[in-house]
Amino acid sequence: MIKGVIFDLDGTLLDSVTDIMNSLNKILGKYDYELKNYQEVRSYLGNGAQKLVERSIPSEKDREVLNRIVSEYNDYYKKNSNIDTKPYDGIMELLEYLKNHNYKTAITSNKIQEGVTSLNNDTFKGLIDVAIGERVGLKLKPNPDMIYLALKELNLNADEVLYVGDTEVDLLTAQNAKLKSIAVTWGFRDYEVLADLNPNYIVNEPKEIINILKEV
């Protein structure tokens, strides 16, 4: 019996590309790197800030420079993460349904913990029970450690949870944690990319997740 749902954040619950792009370009411009457009940034997302920066400036091999840019990006983004960011259509209704029907919920994200906490508190206002982001000592997805921590905090077993995400990183995370997965098509990856990874379900609208929960 399914008792909980674990979500990715960016591209699954939140349309956050514009704020990420603007924060990234603010720092790239400071150092005279080429600025990135919406589609480029969208394609770079899923593996955390370090990979976002590395994919944005692949010619830069100096680790000290990369680390400085990542740090400055994180600092700037913390203060500018909720300007144009908003839930996708139907997400709030989905979360309210889950809360009203006593499903436990969590976020696991490769975004820094401060950003995850802030967006969760400001946007979802108590609809999500647990919010886990990048922190010291916790490996990033697709390593399953974030899932294991979420399961522990929710007091649920893997077979009692569905995992919802929008990228190959999310689906690999679900596989590694032995969770059934739902891939969403409104996020950062196209249908074909998601289908190749054989998720248990693929949905085009949040309300379809409610239908799945009624069936499993």
Rank of each mutant, 00 (worst) to 15 (best):
V41Q: 08
V203W: 08
K79F: 08
D122M: 06
V130R: 06
G46L: 06
I57A: 02
Q175M: 05
L24Q: 11
G46D: 04
L9M: 15
Y97D: 01
T185E: 15
G48K: 15
K51Q: 14
N198W: 04
K152Q: 10
L14P: 11
I128W: 10
R189K: 15
A177F: 09
P142Y: 05
A49L: 01
P142W: 11
Y97G: 01
I182F: 05
V203D: 04
M21K: 15
P206Y: 13
N37H: 04
N157P: 01
Y201C: 04
V41G: 03
I202Y: 03
L138D: 04
K141D: 01
P199D: 09
E168S: 15
A174Y: 01
L156T: 03
Y44R: 02
L95R: 07
K139C: 13
F124A: 06
Y31D: 04
A49I: 02
I182R: 06
Q113P: 07
D32P: 00
A174D: 02
T117P: 00
L13Y: 05
S118N: 12
K141N: 01
R189M: 10
N74Q: 14
D129R: 11
D75Y: 09
N198Y: 12
K79V: 07
V70C: 12
Y88V: 00
E34K: 15
V17Y: 03
W186N: 13
K61M: 07
S16E: 13
D159F: 07
T108E: 05
N74G: 00
E60W: 07
I112P: 15
D8M: 05
T12Y: 10
V203C: 09
Y148E: 12
L156F: 01
A150Q: 13
N67L: 13
L24M: 13
D170H: 01
L45M: 15
P199L: 12
P199G: 09
N200L: 01
E72I: 00
F124K: 11
Y191K: 14
E205P: 01
K214N: 06
K207P: 08
K30I: 11
E134Y: 13
E205V: 08
N121V: 04
L13V: 09
G187P: 10
K86W: 03
T105A: 05
R63H: 06
L98G: 11
I212L: 11
D190Q: 13
A158R: 14
I128Q: 11
D84I: 00
K30N: 11
P206G: 07
T12E: 07
D32H: 12
N110D: 07
N143C: 10
L45W: 14
I147S: 03
L171G: 03
G115A: 01
Q39N: 15
K79Y: 09
L213R: 02
S71F: 12
L127V: 02
K104H: 10
N67S: 12
G137D: 12
E40G: 02
L172E: 13
I69V: 15
G11K: 11
A195N: 14
Y44T: 02
Y163M: 14
M92S: 03
E160D: 14
K104M: 10
V164E: 04
K178V: 06
E192T: 13
T117Y: 05
K207M: 09
L162E: 04
Q50M: 13
N74F: 03
I91C: 05
K26W: 03
E192S: 14
F7Y: 11
T105D: 07
E208R: 02
L45C: 14
I57W: 01
L52Q: 08
Y77C: 09
M146K: 08
A177R: 12
